Computed example of a mutant assay.
Amino acid sequence: MAADLSITPLLKLLAQYQESEDKTVSHDLVVSVTAAFASILTENGINEAQRSALLTAMSFSGLSYNSDIITPIVKVMRSVAVKVPIDFHDREFATKKLKLKRHNYHGGFVDIVGTGGDGHNTFNVSTTSALLASPYLLIAKHGNRAATSVSGSSDMISALAGSPSVLSVPPEAVGPILTHHSNLAFLFAPTYHPSLATVAKLRRELGFSTIFNVLGPLANPIEGIEARILGVKNKRLGNVFARVLQLMGIQKGMVVCGDVGRGLDEISPCGTTSCWRLVAAPAGSPPGTLASISEFQLHPERDFGLALHPLEECKSRSPHENADIVKSILRNEVPTGDPIMDYCLLNSAALLVVAEVVDDWKEAVGLIQQAMQEKASLKEWEAYAAACDALHQKNSK
């Protein structure tokens, strides 16, 4: 372990920021905070007392939700993550991407994730939506175990597979699975972000959300993400996260917050959802031109042609109970108008629109329903689960 690095000057800067009426974030503060987190993520050279003080000061000052602060730290976090060695020039992989290309979607990786912590304990809609959209998209679903809900994405995926083998896929196997077996890949966060293990105990002991709760959903380790949907737990974070995606150079993306109570980190089945969509820079724009941000609302009936459902009917159950529901959805055994089914249709259809497979929300719903009727989503999942199981058995010998 490296010798302890003192961040006392930074802690003084943070104290001054918190006490000041001027909430302008200076360049010096950004540089100092980024350097401190780089040390935590690479060397663990800051003692626990100062790491605790840093996380606390960041949270209580509101800087954990500042786009100028978040963006460089996300870049550091992704730079030290375990890489997924995808050969984008591989002929078979390129052919697969070409087959998926449709309208303005170019066959790139797509992700959908919520920040969590909204307190609603809803069904695993992001993960299920990724599965439903997989016949049309190259899915790189980044997920973890439950933090504040009954069933996290990896908890449900493991239960759905009937084996933890889907969580033990090594990074070097992701490319071959995507190339030869399925449009799906589940990237289990601890595999790709081992540096976070050094702060896990501290985060538990602090007992409140820290900037690491914010960073996780932004830190998908795979390169070449074409489009993503990111759910946030309250509306004041919408523009913040949209700005972070914009500064990261994302051209296709949407941040969503359901207008339910304090906020829902998914597209709401029971009313309006506030959205901040990244609109790609026009063709011919200079390299590095950032996307613009368009703010609007979506509604299940008006935009998707789906019925409204109370959120109470979309609650999460145990991972195994949720997995049983997902199996029924993938097998097209769930009746039309089922609340959880419609909840998943909303979010999976939105993923198709954000990726620009189609431009119309209702048309996107129709495509997802068609994939369900043809059991195409089920085939993608079964192919992925089988590939993971075969790999696990091979490595266990």
Rank of each mutant, 00 (worst) to 15 (best):
A3E: 13
T8H: 10
T8V: 11
T8P: 00
L10M: 11
L10T: 00
Q16P: 00
V33H: 02
A38K: 13
N44E: 09
I46Y: 03
N47Q: 12
A49P: 00
Q50M: 10
A53G: 07
G62A: 10
G62I: 08
S64H: 10
D68E: 13
D68N: 11
I73K: 01
V76R: 01
P85G: 06
P85E: 04
A94L: 13
L98V: 06
K99L: 15
L100F: 11
G108Y: 07
I112F: 15
G114D: 04
G117E: 10
G117F: 13
D118L: 05
G119D: 06
H120C: 05
F123L: 04
V125P: 02
S126W: 13
A130R: 03
L132W: 04
S134Q: 07
Y136V: 03
L138C: 05
L138F: 02
I139K: 01
G143M: 03
G143K: 01
R145N: 14
S151W: 06
S151K: 05
S153T: 15
A159M: 05
A161F: 04
S165L: 00
V166I: 12
L167A: 01
S168P: 00
S168F: 13
P170H: 11
E172F: 09
A173V: 01
L178I: 01
H181K: 14
H193W: 05
S195M: 13
R204P: 01
F212M: 09
G231D: 03
N234C: 12
N234R: 15
K235R: 14
R236T: 12
L237Q: 04
V240Y: 08
R243G: 11
R243D: 15
K252H: 15
E266M: 08
E266W: 07
I267C: 03
P269L: 09
S274I: 12
C275A: 11
V279Y: 03
P282N: 10
A283N: 12
P287I: 08
T289E: 06
I293N: 08
E295V: 15
Q297N: 12
H299P: 05
F304A: 04
A307W: 00
P310T: 13
R317I: 00
H320T: 14
E321Q: 14
I329S: 01
R331W: 08
P339A: 11
C344Q: 04
A349V: 06
A350P: 04
L351C: 05
V353D: 02
A355P: 01
A355G: 08
D360Q: 12
E363L: 10
V365S: 00
G366Q: 07
G366P: 03
L367P: 01
Q369N: 11
W381P: 00
A383G: 09
K394P: 00
N395F: 13
K397R: 14
